[in-house]
Nucleic acid binder design. Structure first.
Lengths: 175, 175
DNA sequence: CGCGGGTGTTCCGTTTACGGAACGATGGCA
DNA sequence: TGCCATCGTTCCGTAAACGGAACACCCGCG
C-alpha cells in the first residue's frame, strides 16, 4: 500500500520558496508577516524541519494562498489510459463521495472492473469528447456535457474526439 | 489548557475522527497502521495538539485519503440561502471551470442574477431534493441526480424536500 | 572607505509534539 | 461470575520544532 509516495514533506519546502520568490518577497519579510521566526522558515524551505500545522497555516496565510496549495500532492491514480487526481472526499450521511479530476489522452480508452453494488459515477466534461458508461451502453458527452452510469457492472472510459478529455468524475458509494 | 489552536488545526481533528469512524476503524488500529502513538492520535483528534506535517501525512496515508482531504479549508461564499465552498478552479483551454460544493437549508430558496453569455451551471446532488435552473423552467433532482442550465438568464436554487440539499456545482465560463 | 539596513543561515534555550507504558472502561465469552 | 482483549485517555521522558539573537554577507549611500 505504501506505494512509492515521495515524502510529502520534502515537497513543501521548495514550494514555499517558489511561491515566496514569485511574489518578490524576502524570507525575512515572510517571517515577519507570518509571525514566525526566520529560523523556522529557513529550515522549512530547506526541508530540514518537519513543520507544524500551525506553522504551515501561518505561512499559507502570509503568502495569500490556501493551505492546500502548500501540501497538495496529486495522489494520481494512473490507469492504462485514464489519469485521475483525487480532489476531495465527502462524507454526507447516507453516502460517501469521491471527487476526481480525470484526464484521458486523445484516442485512448480503458475499462474498469465493477465496484460494489449501488456505486454510481457522474462525469462532467470540461474538454474533449468523452465516451463512458456500461460497456454495452456507453454515452457520449462534449464540453459542458454530463454522463452518469452505474459502476457495479464493467464500465469504460474513452476519449473519442481528436483531443484529450478533461472531466470531473464523482463516484458515489452508498452505505 | 486554553490551547486555543488557531483556525486550521481545530478542523483537522474532527475530520480525522469522522473519516476514521466512517471506515469503522478504531483509534488504536489507525495508530498501528500509521505507525504513530495512540497518544498522538488521541490528542490530534481532540484538537489539543498541533500535529506535524509528517504526522498528518502518515494519518492521511493510513486513512487512504489525500493529505488535502484533511487540511482543506474552504473559501465560503454565503448567499441568502445558498452556501458555496470553492473547491477548485480549472483553466482548461477554451473555458474556465469553478467547482463548488453547495449547501441549501431545507425549504430555503435563492435567486441569482444572470452571468455572462454562454455560462452554464452543472449540479450533481448528494442529498436532499434540489430545484434549480432558469426561473421559468427549473428542474428537480434528488440524491445522485443531475441538473444543468444556462446561467445567462436569471436563475435560482431551492431545497424543496424536507431536508438540506448538498450538491456539487460546476460553473463553466467560456472564453 | 565606514555605515546602516537589508539579506539568509546558524546557534541556543524554551516549549511542546512525539512514542511507550500504564490506566480505567467496555465488551464478548466460557 | 471471572477472564482477557481491546477500546480511548492520561502520564512521562525524550527528541525536536519553535522564537530570539548573533552571525556573515551584500548592497546603496554619504
Amino acid at each position: 500500500m505504501d506505494a512509492a509516495l515521495p515524502d510529502g514533506a520534502a515537497h513543501v519546502g521548495p514550494r514555499v520558496r517558489a511561491l515566496r520568490s514569485a511574489q518578490g518577497m524576502s524570507l525575512s519579510e515572510l517571517a515577519r508577516r507570518a509571525g514566525l521566526g526566520k529560523a523556522t522558515l529557513s529550515g522549512l524551505e530547506a526541508g530540514t524541519r518537519n513543520p507544524t500545522l500551525d506553522t504551515l497555516h501561518s505561512v499559507a496565510a502570509a503568502l495569500g494562498v490556501a493551505l492546500t496549495a502548500l501540501v497538495s500532492e496529486s495522489t494520481r491514480i494512473q490507469g492504462a489510459a485514464v489519469a485521475m487526481d483525487l480532489l476531495r472526499v465527502f462524507d454526507d450521511g447516507p453516502a460517501t463521495y469521491e471527487l476526481y479530476r480525470m484526464r484521458i489522452p486523445a484516442g485512448a480508452a480503458q475499462t474498469s472492473p465493477p465496484h460494489h453494488a449501488g456505486v454510481t459515477e457522474h462525469a462532467t466534461v470540461f474538454a474533449g469528447e468523452l465516451r463512458a458508461g456500461a460497456l454495452d451502453a456507453p454515452g457520449t458527452a462534449g464540453p459542458g456535457g454530463y454522463l452518469e452510469w452505474t459502476a457495479d457492472t464493467p464500465h469504460g472510459y474513452a476519449a473519442i474526439g481528436g483531443q484529450d478529455v478533461h472531466a470531473s468524475l464523482l463516484i458515489r458509494y452508498p452505505r
